[in-house]
Design a protein around this nucleic acid. Sequence first.
DNA 1: CGAATTTGACCAGCGC
DNA 2: GCGCTGGTCAAATTCG
Length: 169
Amino acid sequence: MTERNPIAANSSSPDSDFSSQQWSFELSDYMSFADIELQQVDPTANNQSFVYQANEIAGGSSNIEGSSSYTRDTNTTMSGTALTQGTYWKNEVNKRVAFKTMTEIEILDDGYRWRKYGKKMVKNSPNPRNYYRCSVEGCPVKKRVEKDKDDSRYVITTYEGLHTHSTSS
DNA sequence: CGAATTTGACCAGCGC
DNA sequence: GCGCTGGTCAAATTCG
């Protein structure tokens, strides 16, 4: 875990901003975690793409309720042309992961084929939230993509579920 | 021609 | 009990 956040350190967003109330508030607002014990993701995998990690820690999905504690960690990876400044939350039970990605492209090719099945305007953000689902039949993986309400250059991606097939793009 | 997107409608859970 | 918000469906449409 030697990599920190080159973006935050070198842009106008200091580290404090990266893990401050702004973040916690926005994500926790629509991401509630059960009141259980959480486990931190091993950041040594930051050589891999964020997709790989998401697949690792993501699993089944179920209804989530309550929000008392959660584990937050940061990570930075490179995925093609997109630099992922990942801050993700892991929940052992619900297996839901959120990433905040700095990219100029909205559609990030993470190796999987996603089929959009919905778009919704959220109250907290002027930007719409997009709902995607893995195109592979039987694959329960879902994903939400939403632009950051403050910085449109940031994209919040939330993965839910585990891919039961090999990567194909 | 087949497959993926779009967009509004529909439904369920929660709060007031 | 009603209204609001978030999430999903599904028919029509567009794209390759």
